[in-house]
Design a protein around this nucleic acid. Structure first.
Length: 599
RNA sequence: GGCCCGGUAGCUCAGCUGGAUAGAGCAUCAGCCUUCUAAGCUGAGGGUCAUUGGUUCGAAUCCAAUCCGGGUCACCA
């Protein structure tokens, strides 16, 4: 338990003891970190008690403060300032905290439980390469998987590949018509990019055909349906569903190219999955659930044979679950897939990382599953995130207005190189070391950039402005880490914690403010890690890591470790920086960001 | 139009389960490298927390209304 949580209990206890007659059960106790302009470490807000106890805040504060200082041994002094009781924590507490935890590489983690959670993320379509928006999804999902693990959950990382449908046929038709048998080998293009080019080509031709039809006097809506290339795509989809050999072969070939491209991008990003679902295998699922729902009379049939659910009682609309011709819709598949996932892994929770444009769909999905009595319903959570937009508006793959993931990664790595060379910091590394370093910096900056803001907020990314490597960035945190490693090297202390031993245990020196700020922050890490999991929000970890690095930099500027006043101080500071480096590494690793020992 | 999400410094964002004088980064300006890495540190300027009303000892935070921006309300996925 963190100190703030302990203080809350201690105060509750003290109040009960001091004012046995008063009914203080309903009073919520607020413990804050004391503002820097006041003396003290933690603050008890006294106002809530004032009414119940009918005491003046100052008198109450004095009585409570005296009691806490005398009875607990945690605090050395207190001050009451206009309704706030500021408590100063005994330096021994912080020293003991460091002694007990500085070498613990699992600090902040929760013990394992049998709570099994699936996190589905990435879930790409196989008609185009991954872009900047997908990266937000992927990094969010991967980070949440790690964060959940660190909080004691068993995690299944899942990818549901959308490998069939009209959009896939569009790329296929365009390739057939205009591709001249181009392959990744013959063109030197990455497979996903090659296929994506034909998706764009399809839409170019489609637009031209519509324009021509309209020019010939056809109505626009009709033209959109009658355009020859669209009819071809629809015909191809029918052939695909009928299992027509040639179409299936082309489909497998082109998807194979795309998967190779995706694998390459995932590898560069350091992303892995435990389970891959393919929509071509799951798109027929869900029909059973619909049949069962009809039996249970949760669903109903209209005259044309289509199957619906009525959600008007819940303030929503009627929703189609099966077309009149018996074919399934998006929702049908999702119902089936939800059950499949649950049956495959006996899940306690199922997290879907999906953009916020699908909020309504996910709300309806969960509600329908609940009404159907599916056991998976309660565990479903939609981790909804805002879309990444360009200054000119939304990215559109079919118009080619996207920031490509592969390009972005390459650009960031080259930016890392440029800036390292400009700073004159590329000396003394081998080629391989430099390559690794640039990747750490470039990729780290990219991941941090996408994870540092609240997931539900939409982001606007201007490709003309490169992602910064100064200030609130991964680079800042990496730099602090490298500085710490540099000190440890100089002091011959192992960089990896766990095997550091110190002789002296008798620390009597007063802790300075810069020192204390770091230890206080370190002590709060378990709470931050827990809340990142509870809120499904990795940005809290970005924020925390940045603040900790900032505190370290301030400390570093004010105090010397190597030339500490005495051996005792030096050891205390070494413990502090070892634990700081360890905590930064821990938090950043959860987000897939590596910290270099030298940069 | 219904529902959902957002609106905080010039820009990008924290803070939102109510607590002290609203915080960072970028940008601007002024300082700091013979001492463990200046990708850093210190300081300055910059705010009607969209608006109005309400609840409260206390509101950026809760409630209501209004304004602005986005999403969604498909027999597309």
């Amino acid at each position: 338990m963190t100190l703030a949580a302990q203080i809350k209990l201690i105060v509750a206890d003290a109040v009960k003891h001091l004012f046995a007659d008063a009914d203080v059960k309903g009073v919520t106790i607020t413990i804050n970190q004391t503002k820097p302009e006041f003396e003290g470490d933690y603050t008890v807000v006294l106002f809530p008690f004032v009414k119940v106890l009918r005491m003046k805040p100052d008198a109450l504060g004095a009585q409570l403060g005296t009691y806490l200082v005398e009875k607990t041994g945690i605090f050395t002094s207190y001050q009451v300032v206009s309704g706030f009781l500021n408590l100063t924590v005994n330096d021994n507490y912080w020293v003991n905290f460091l002694l007990n935890n500085f070498n613990n590489i699992h600090f902040g983690e929760k013990p394992g439980t049998d709570c099994r959670v699936m996190i589905e993320y990435s879930s790409p379509n196989t008609n185009k390469p991954l872009h900047f928006g997908h990266m937000r999804n992927i990094f969010l999902g991967a980070a949440m998987a790690q964060i959940c693990k660190a909080n004691g959950k068993q995690v299944v990382k899942a990818n549901l590949i959308n490998d069939r449908g009209i959009h896939i046929c569009k790329s296929m038709v365009a390739w057939q018509e205009y591709g001249n048998n181009a392959t990744p080998e013959s063109t030197g293009l990455k497979g996903d990019h090659l296929v994506g080019d034909y998706y764009v080509k399809f839409n170019d031709v489609y637009k031209e055909e519509i324009a021509q039809l309209v020019a010939e006097g056809t109505d626009k809506d009709k033209a959109e349906k009658e355009a020859p290339i669209m009819k071809e795509a629809q015909a191809m989809l029918r052939d695909w569903e009928a299992g027509e050999m040639e179409v299936r072969e082309l489909w497998q070939t082109m998807n194979g190219w795309v998967y190779k491209g995706f694998d390459d991008t995932y590898r560069k990003m350091g992303i892995t999955f435990d389970k891959t679902y393919y929509e071509s295998n799951t798109y027929l699922l869900g029909k059973n659930i619909v049949a069962e729902g009809l039996e249970k009379k949760v669903l109903f049939t209209k005259e044309d044979g289509s199957v619906w659910i009525d959600l008007t009682e819940d303030g929503l609309d009627q929703k189609l679950l099966l077309r009149g011709d018996g074919t399934s819709v998006y929702m049908t598949q999702d119902l089936g897939t939800a059950r499949l996932k649950y049956d495959d892994y006996k899940l306690s929770q199922s997290v879907y990382v999906i953009a916020d444009e699908q909020n309504y769909h996910m709300q309806v999905l969960k509600l329908i599953l609940k009404k159907l009595g599916e056991p998976c319903a309660d565990g479903i959570y939609h981790l909804s995130y805002g879309m990444v937009e360009l200054p000119t508006g939304r990215m559109k793959s079919r118009e080619g207005t996207v920031v490509d993931a592969d390009d972005m990664i390459a650009e960031m790595i080259s930016l890392a190189q440029t800036q390292t060379e400009q700073a004159g910091k590329s000396d003394g590394f081998t080629h391989a070391e430099l390559a690794a370093l640039y990747e750490m910096i470039g990729l780290g900056a990219l991941k941090f950039y996408l994870l540092r803001v609240d997931p539900k907020k939409k982001m606007i990314f201007d490709p003309k402005e490169s992602i910064d490597l100064h200030g609130y960035t991964a680079t800042f945190i990496q730099y602090a880490h490298a500085r710490i490693c540099s000190i440890l090297r100089k002091e011959n202390v192992p960089l990896l914690p766990g095997n550091t031993k110190f002789q002296s245990t008798d620390f009597k020196q007063a802790i300075t403010l810069a020192e204390k700020n770091i230890v206080v922050a370190l002590e709060q890490y378990p709470d931050v890690l827990a809340s990142a999991a509870e809120e499904y929000d990795p940005s809290t970890l970005c924020n925390y890591s940045f603040q900790l690095a900032q505190l370290f930099n301030t400390f570093y500027d004010e105090h010397s470790i190597s030339k500490a006043e005495n051996e005792e101080k030096k050891q205390l500071r070494l413990m502090m920086i070892i634990m700081t480096a360890q905590t930064l590494r821990h938090a950043m690793n959860l987000m897939g960001i590596k910290l270099p020992e030298r940069m």
